[in-house]
């Protein structure tokens, strides 16, 4: 009896009982979640038809929690990778504050709850799309693509691009060309955004054994691909205006922002050595976030005054 008690008493010091509320919050990847909420809100606001504000709030809440749940499942699966990378080693699981199993159950519970709530309280299509998004991010991207191919973030980017479609479906119950364009915009934006970071964090990814494009195909090829995707992204960003879905304000801003995106991508392509190359990657990465934020902010603004 005393032996067993002693063992259990000793183990108590190693329990993950120190996990605070903020650790579970961190499992939800709040920064990613904020982008998801923002783009989903644009989908809700731009969709034709009315939605009761309370139901709209529920839709946003479910999409946010679903995205967070996918983040928790990603952190559970990738805990070994996260422990080897400077950028992620302080996350709750590699830091030892949350047990992997706890994160998995947390993620699964929130996934089920958010999908059920969205499906039952808002709409079946929106719920099904959220379920697909979580599955795509946690299983297709995290468990399969991320460790298998340098195209991981290209295909996996679909998960991050779906929230505006879910928001649109929550209002209308269907999916049309406009939300598909918003999807395409985020989908094409993802590779240059992530590859700019991958060029900066190449050693980190190498240590973790993740086949990011710079590690597999080299820096030059990555720079070429960034430029090519940016050449596609700029017109895709203008497409909602060109197809008559937005006003002149969006048209003018999307043309200007697209031109600057190309300029930053060109700098990354041209500057290949030393600090100048690093600075060009940092600039593109930072600007890519601003680019997407501003485009969606204008879409949101135009949708609200419509």
């Amino acid at each position: 009896m005393s032996l067993i008690s002693e063992e259990r008493t000793v183990r108590a010091d190693n329990l993950s009982g120190f996990a605070g509320v903020e650790d579970y919050w961190a499992l939800l990847k709040p920064r990613v979640m904020s982008l998801v909420i923002f783009t989903a809100l644009v989908g809700i606001v731009r969709a034709p038809g009315d939605i009761h504000p309370v139901i709209g709030f529920v839709a946003l809440l479910c999409i946010a929690v679903g995205a967070g749940a996918a983040g928790a499942l990603n952190m559970w699966w990738d805990a070994d990778i996260d422990a080897r990378m400077d950028r992620t080693r302080t996350r709750p699981i590699p830091a030892g504050r949350v047990e992997p199993g706890e994160a998995m159950v947390f993620g699964l519970l929130l996934s089920g709850a958010s999908v059920l709530m969205l499906g039952l309280l808002v709409g079946v299509l929106a719920g099904a799309l959220l379920a697909f998004t979580i599955f795509f991010y946690a299983v297709i991207y995290s468990m399969w693509l991320k460790r298998a191919t340098p195209q991981n973030i290209v295909i996996g980017g679909a998960a991050g691009a779906l929230p505006p479609i879910i928001g649109w479906a929550a209002v209308t119950g269907n999916v049309t060309l406009e939300p598909l364009l918003l999807f395409t915009l985020i989908f094409v934006w993802t590779p240059p955004h992530f590859w700019a970071l991958a060029l900066l964090k190449k050693r980190d990814y190498e240590r973790a054994g993740i086949p990011m494009l710079p590690n597999v195909a080299g820096d030059d090829e990555t720079r070429r691909q960034i430029l090519l995707y940016s050449l596609v992204l700029a017109p895709v960003g203008v497409a909602p205006f060109a197809l008559g879905m937005t006003g002149w304000l969006y048209g003018a801003i999307s043309i200007a922002l697209g031109a600057f995106f190309l300029l930053f991508a060109w700098q990354v392509y041209r500057k290949r050595e030393g600090e100048a190359a690093e600075r060009a990657c940092k600039h593109l990465f930072a600007y890519s976030i601003l680019y997407l934020f501003l485009l969606f902010a204008v879409l949101l603004g135009e949708g609200m005054v419509r």
Binding site: M1, S2, S5, E6, R8, T9, A12, D13, L15, G17
Partner: peptide
Amino acid sequence: TNDKGVILT
């Protein structure tokens, strides 16, 4: 030794 089981800090 302790027979109270797991003791939390």
